[in-house]
């Protein structure tokens, strides 16, 4: 087994990239009815860090991500990226969705060039960058294919290359591998580690898959529901500042089971609380 590669930047040298401060979101439905989805959420994502928002379904993690993307407006609190206040969507926060978002009428190459075309990147640079990122997601053979000819995992790689080629300051991913079969999912997770290392990307990822969070993330923000709040902010420190290249490495690493067990307990506790409150309402 090859030794774990050192991460390029030591944790101490990292600066806060994304700052989320006391963010809340209350949805209004047809006048009177309101649902508080998220309350007082605060956390940081450091430069070049991979951060996972983890939690049971309905904990508001996707809402938090959508607010960071600017697709949803917070009802309270504020967020900054590189010190600038987040208002509305823009190219500094590129997002990859769970549903396939490849543009079916464009080839792989044209899909990856899309953002750069919109942002008026000169043609030669556009072509060159697109080729580089298509290579990074290992789709060079398929650059002239249409998305309908590709598998689900390949389409997701097109979306990742398209977002990264547009040079975002942070990459946002909303359960990006959730629609894939188990084997493709871990292949994508392993590929994603390589992509993050090569492109020096800061990544904020939403997932409900605990192993995915541990494998990919340097930091896990565990969220609790009703309403969505941050329950624990965990550094994945058993990795000692390195990232795994394969799942086997992760499973063999000392400290992995302890962290998995700890998060399992958190999840168990969440479902127990739900059962209790449901029982309380029934009486």
């Amino acid at each position: 087994m090859s030794p774990l590669p050192e991460s390029k930047i030591a944790p101490a040298a990292r600066r806060s990239k994304l700052a989320v401060r006391g963010v809340g979101k209350t949805f209004q439905f047809s006048g009177r009815e309101t649902i508080e989805a998220v309350r007082g959420v605060s956390f940081d994502v450091m430069e070049n860090e991979i951060c996972a928002l983890l939690g049971p379904s309905g904990c508001g993690k996707s809402t938090v991500l959508r607010m960071v993307a600017g697709l949803e407006e917070p009802t309270s609190g504020a967020m900054t990226l590189d010190g600038h206040r987040i208002e509305g969507p823009d190219k500094s926060r590129g997002m990859v969705f769970q549903a396939y978002t490849s543009f079916d009428w464009l080839t792989v190459q044209q899909n990856v060039e899309y953002g750069m075309r919109i942002n008026k990147v000169p043609k030669t640079e556009r072509k060159e960058r697109a080729a580089r990122f298509i290579d990074l997601v290992k789709l060079t053979r398929f650059r002239n294919a249409y998305p309908s000819q590709l598998s689900g995992g390949m389409r997701q790689r097109v979306a990742i290359a398209r977002t990264l080629a547009n040079d975002p300051s942070i990459l946002l991913m909303d359960e990006p591998f959730g629609a894939l079969d188990a084997e493709t999912r871990w292949q994508m997770q392993e590929l994603m580690v390589g992509i993050a290392e090569t492109s020096q990307t800061t990544l904020l990822l939403v997932t409900h898959d605990l192993e995915e969070a541990i494998f990919l993330a340097d930091r896990i923000v565990f969220m609790s529901r009703h309403p969505g709040t941050v329950r624990e902010n965990l550094m994945v420190d058993f990795k000692k500042g390195r990232r795994f290249q394969s799942r086997e490495q992760m499973i063999e690493a000392p400290g992995y089971y302890e962290l998995e067990k700890k998060i399992m307990h958190l999840m168990r506790d969440e479902s127990r609380r739900d059962a209790d409150s449901a029982a309380g309402q029934a009486h």
Binding site: A69, D90, R93, M95, T101, G115, I118, A159, R162
Partner: peptide
């Protein structure tokens, strides 16, 4: 699909 439009938005 809304995701297509939102993808466009987050690409600038």
């Amino acid at each position: 699909r809304t995701e297509l439009i939102e993808t466009g938005m987050t690409l600038g």
